[in-house]
Every structure is written in C-alpha cells, then in structure tokens.
Amino acid sequence: MAKRPAYSNLCKALEAGHFVFTGELEPKKILQEGVEEVIHSAKEMRKTNRIIAANVTDGPQGDAYMCSMVPSYLVQREAEIEAVWQVAVRDRNRVALFGDILGGAVLGLKNILVLTGDHTALGDNKKARPAYDIDSTQFCELLKKMIDEGTDYAGKEITDGKIEMNYGCVANPNAVGDYMEPEILKVGRKVEQGIDFIQTQTAFDIDIAKNFINELSRYKVPILLGVFPMKSYGIAWYFDNYIPGVSVPKDLLKALKTAEKENKGDKKAKYAALDKVNVEFFKPFIKEIKDNSKASGVHCMAVEYERLFQPLLGEYPEYVKEFY
C-alpha cells in the first residue's frame, strides 16, 4: 500500500525530519472555566514554537471527564496548536467511534491517538459497564478504512469521501524482560493496521528507554518517547506509588522533596528549585534520546507545567514556525 500522506502538522514535521515535541492537556470534570485553563496551557505550548501538537486526554485512569473532542477543537481554534485527539475504545462501540471521528474530521482535527483506555474498574464510576466492542488494534483498522478507503468498519461508504487524518498508538517502555516481546509484537499488529506514529508511556530509565526504542524501530514508524517532568513532590510520590509498573528514580524523588522542603513558604524559590531539579534530570535525558536513539521526538507529559517548557526545550530549534 502506498504511504499515507501527512495530513497533520505533526506528521508533516516528522516527515521533514524534525525532532518533534508534543505536550499533554487533561480536561477533567470541568465546564467553561476549566476549558479556558486548558486553552491557556495550550497557548503556552504554542508560544514555545517547539511543541508542535498537544495531546488531549480521554478519561485517563477510567475517570468520567469532559470528552476529548470538544477541547481538541477549542485548542486548535483558540490556541492555534494542533491537537492529538486521544480516543479510547473503552466508552464507545464501533458505531459511536465512527460517528465521533466523522464529527472530529469536520471540526478539523488531524491527529488521533488510539487507546484501549484504563478500565472503568479503576475510575471514579466503578459500577459502569465499559464498551470494548472493538479493541485498539481494530480501532486502527477502522481509521484505516475511514482514511484510506472512505468507509465505516462494515465497508459502507462515507457519502462525502475519505477523511484526512493521521493516527498513532501507544507503547509501553516499562514492559521489560520477558514482557517486552509481547508488547513489541502487539505494536506490530497496529503497524499492520496503518499507524503513522507511536507515542510511548513515560520512561525514567535511559537504558530501558533506548533499548525499547531500538526494538520498536524495526517497524520504521516515528516514535515519540514519553517523559514526565513532575511539578511537585506530591505528583512524583503519587506517580511512584500509584501508577503501576513505573517507578520514579529514588534520587529524583529525593531531589524534588528537598527542593520543596528547603523553600517552604517561598513559592517563587520553591518553583525555581523544583524546575531546576526537573531540568537537571530531563534535559540531558532528552538530549541523549535525541542524539543516541532512533526516536523522532519526545512526548512531554508535563500537564499544567507550562513554565518548564522554556528552560527544558529552549535550546531546540523553533521548527514549529514552519507549519503555522
């Protein structure tokens, strides 16, 4: 099959060979005011000229949050930064997914990140019945049909033609040892179903990350490695204790704790100290990924941590200007 055109700025930048950055926005249980905050975050990302697109999450941890489609649209309209519209198969069957994607296409959304979605048993409405009509690989096939053939999953044609979008999937670098091979092979099935990019879960161990990227690179699909700068010790502690399979390095945890402790009462100094810790850890981390791995970019999941963008990414070229 001929290679799919790059419809989105993200894929155009990847095609042009730039080392790209994407950010992350998390609409929660919000209305207008909350959405304004999301848009504000997106504007800060856009200002960097280094973050090409912003992921908009879809009910992370299985929580009942605002849909991801509307904030994705608003972010594109108000902040002029492309959205990576995250869509989980947890809450919608193939009929609803198809309908939503058609709607999203009309709203001008260009990137979709396909997710299985954390189970509702983990979320804040535990008694819910999840959908999981199709799985994330089958969702990739649905998108392939919509984009390349202009049909729904059953092969029924879209009256107005094909949709113009690119889509990617997630991979987990924390699947190590015996668990790495099934993870890699699983991504292979999604490659077969036409994904345009891969964004990984967060990684803290440089060697594990590089090894994982090396394994994934066999598929010749652009990989964006996930990193997670933490704006407080509390977030880091929560992440370390409650996000399974991921452990924050002890030194980093300790440094964040010290930064907060030593600057108690002085907000400005505390922020500066926390930022310093993050920059000291993640700046060389990102540089190493850029220089010595086959990754095509970094997905920076620093939600509501806009002030870190400049010190963390300031030295990279302002390639985003070419695309807006």
Binding site: R90, T116, Y132, S136, T137, A175, P182, R189
Partner: peptide, 12 residues
C-alpha cells in the same frame, strides 16, 4: 477488556 489483540497497557 475482552481484547482480541492484547495485551493492553494495563498489564504490569
């Protein structure tokens, strides 16, 4: 999650 093409990211 009744997946036909697993595992998902929820396995540790």
């Amino acid at each position: 999650k009744h997946l036909s093409n697993g595992p998902c990211g929820g396995t540790v």
